[in-house]
Simulated assay, not measured.
Amino acid sequence: MFYRLSGVYHSSLISDSRMFKVPADRNLAVFLLLIGLAAPFILPSLYLNSYILPWLIWTAAALGLNLVTGWAGQLHLGYAAVMAVGAYSAIHTVRLGVPWEIALIIGGLAASVIGSLFAFAALRVKGLYLALTTLAMQFVMDWVLTHSPTISGGSHASLQAPTLALLGQQITSDAGYYYVALGWCVLVTIFMLNLKRTGLGRALVAVREKDFAAAILGVNSFYYKILAFAASSFIAGVSGALLVATFYFLAAPEQFSVNVSIQVLAMVIVGGLGSIIGSYFGVALILLVPGLVNGLVVTASEELGMQVNVETLAHIPNAVYGALIVIILMIEPLGLGKLYGNIRDYLMTWPFDQLRK
């Protein structure tokens, strides 16, 4: 009943191209934004900065990957590499005396330049061949970070991030870090929501479905592939810089390894390709659920009086977590975003759908 469309007739192109076609979606978005703004006054700092803050930043990063993979259909296994470019570029820029606001933009632009190299590979190959090419570029970036002390400090070293300062004010509180992450995630979400209803978004979808057919219709696949990789890499670069500035507080090569690229891709796939709300769900599942499952297993073993050794206790959450991902994809192969859409579509007609014969 919350999703009722009574009085919404879609009688014009303007009404049909609104950001939120269903009023309940708009109300839910406003409600969640208010909850997000009030979170520092509701949640303890431990939960706020250990769970919610990284969830927001990784969601912004996953939305960037969804832009190139979900919208443009280009399989990307080197996403952590461009995040590393943005993080290290921003840190070195701030160390040269540049304000953080400009350093974040420089980090995003540097990541866009590197990300455009992936686009040139996408012009020649596609599918699994593109995935292999981007994976090779990820390995190249891993080698550069571990063998270039000038950039990263060396294979076993870390680069300390300068104190984050925006608009001339240093940010050192947990609430301050959280609001920076929230602001960036909201900006990326608004960009993606608007992208869906623009000519750029429709062109990317056309390239995803069949680039040859899109070219016949006048869509320049060369231009839009480069644009998708560049925009996605910019989001990745800024997200990587903010992740280092607000959560890790230092940059190390292992933070942006190939495992991270696979993890972000898993977030997008589990959440749903091309789904914005699915990216939120996917990041929450991949990032937060393992810790929750671990806590539940420990609590259950204590309550039942079971003597579980440390090694078994460490592997049970991973097994439960992996089984959960498999079950979700078996129930809805298109991801958590589609599962949410199915529930919403059902509620749009309930209980009147019971009157149908």
Rank of each mutant, 00 (worst) to 15 (best):
L34A: 07
V98Q: 04
L167A: 15
I42H: 14
L159T: 02
N294F: 15
Y223F: 11
G183A: 12
L43N: 10
S17I: 11
T299W: 12
Y321C: 08
T59P: 01
I343V: 15
F212S: 10
L43M: 14
R208I: 08
V94D: 02
E101C: 05
G168W: 11
S221Y: 05
S158K: 10
G240S: 13
G271H: 02
Y9K: 05
L182C: 08
V144R: 08
V244M: 15
G291L: 13
R208D: 12
S116C: 10
V113E: 07
V186H: 02
N27E: 12
F256Y: 12
G70Y: 08
L287I: 04
V68E: 06
N220M: 12
G271Y: 05
P44C: 05
M1L: 10
I327H: 08
L265G: 04
V207P: 01
Y340Q: 13
A231E: 04
L53F: 07
P351A: 07
E302S: 03
T189L: 01
G107L: 00
M192F: 08
P54H: 07
A213Q: 09
V320G: 07
A206L: 12
T93W: 08
A84M: 02
S12K: 13
A214G: 04
Y47D: 08
I226E: 09
L53T: 13
A39K: 13
G108N: 09
A136H: 04
I106Q: 02
R356C: 11
G154W: 13
I190W: 15
L33N: 00
P149M: 06
V238K: 01
W100S: 04
Y223D: 03
L164H: 05
I325P: 02
V289C: 03
I35R: 01
L75N: 07
V258T: 14
R18A: 15
M267L: 15
L37G: 11
L53I: 07
F20K: 02
